[in-house]
Computed example of a mutant assay.
Amino acid sequence: MKITLLCVGKLKEKYLKQGIDEYSKRLSRYCKLEIIEVADEKAPENMSASEEEQVKGKEGEKLSKYIKENTYVIALAIDGKQLSSEELADKISELGVRGNSHIVFIIGGSLGLSDEILKNAHQKLSFSKMTFPHQLMRMILLEQVYRGFRIINGEPYHK
């Protein structure tokens, strides 16, 4: 199985890079992992709603270039469906059984994802009603994908 994280913005914090490197290494036993970053758009303070939509639209266009036809796209969105770790593991397993061997998780920038990306995603996933920094979400998502593969393989994991 191939897992792609498609993300807006560069990772800056060293501690997040270290955590992501650790989970990337752990995941290499279970899947081929690819992390793609697209540049974020400049988003000045006090933008109007239409300016925010323009920024998200430009970021969405950049993201769209990396979404291939034979992929299952899961967009991270605050209004998405919340899943337990076991339910995410079941989803990953189910997709593999159905022949969807490439899952793309999309993490937007500080303003979120464009309507176009959200509309075209197969599923919207939320980790919480709380807002998390989009860079931290990369590590949280990788940890949950790793946990999912451990569950799928009947391996111990911290509950």
Rank of each mutant, 00 (worst) to 15 (best):
K91V: 07
K91R: 14
K91P: 00
I92M: 04
I92Q: 01
I92S: 01
S93M: 07
S93I: 00
S93H: 12
S93N: 13
S93T: 02
E94H: 13
E94G: 09
E94Q: 14
L95A: 06
L95F: 08
G96P: 00
G96W: 05
V97P: 00
V97F: 11
V97T: 11
V97K: 15
V97M: 06
G99A: 10
N100F: 15
N100A: 07
N100M: 07
N100R: 10
S101F: 10
S101N: 14
H102T: 08
I103E: 00
I103R: 00
I103M: 04
I103P: 00
I103H: 02
V104H: 05
V104D: 01
F105Y: 13
F105P: 01
F105M: 06
I107F: 13
G108C: 13
G109C: 11
G109K: 06
G109L: 09
S110R: 11
S110K: 13
S110E: 11
S110L: 12
L111E: 08
L111N: 11
G112I: 07
G112E: 04
G112N: 09
L113S: 08
S114Y: 11
S114N: 09
S114L: 07
S114T: 11
S114C: 12
D115G: 05
D115M: 04
D115F: 11
E116K: 13
E116I: 13
E116N: 12
E116W: 06
E116D: 11
E116F: 14
I117V: 15
I117S: 01
L118V: 14
L118R: 14
K119S: 14
N120M: 05
A121F: 11
A121W: 06
A121I: 10
H122F: 06
Q123R: 14
Q123N: 07
Q123G: 02
Q123F: 15
Q123I: 03
K124W: 12
K124E: 05
K124Q: 14
L125K: 06
L125N: 08
S126K: 05
S126M: 11
F127I: 08
S128A: 13
S128D: 11
K129Y: 12
K129Q: 15
M130K: 13
M130P: 02
F132T: 03
F132N: 01
P133I: 07
P133N: 14
H134K: 09
H134M: 10
H134V: 11
H134E: 08
Q135M: 13
L136K: 04
L136R: 04
L136H: 02
M137F: 08
R138K: 12
M139P: 00
I140W: 08
I140G: 03
I140R: 02
L141D: 01
Q144G: 07
Q144R: 14
Q144K: 13
V145S: 04
V145E: 00
V145I: 15
V145P: 00
Y146C: 04
Y146G: 02
R147T: 06
R147K: 12
R147A: 08
R147L: 08
G148N: 03
G148V: 04
G148Q: 02
G148F: 05
F149Y: 15
R150A: 03
I152N: 01
I152H: 03
N153T: 03
N153P: 02
N153D: 06
G154E: 05
E155V: 07
E155F: 07
E155I: 06
P156M: 03
P156C: 04
P156R: 07
P156Q: 04
Y157L: 02
H158G: 07
H158F: 13
H158R: 10
H158Y: 11
H158M: 12
K159R: 15
K159N: 06
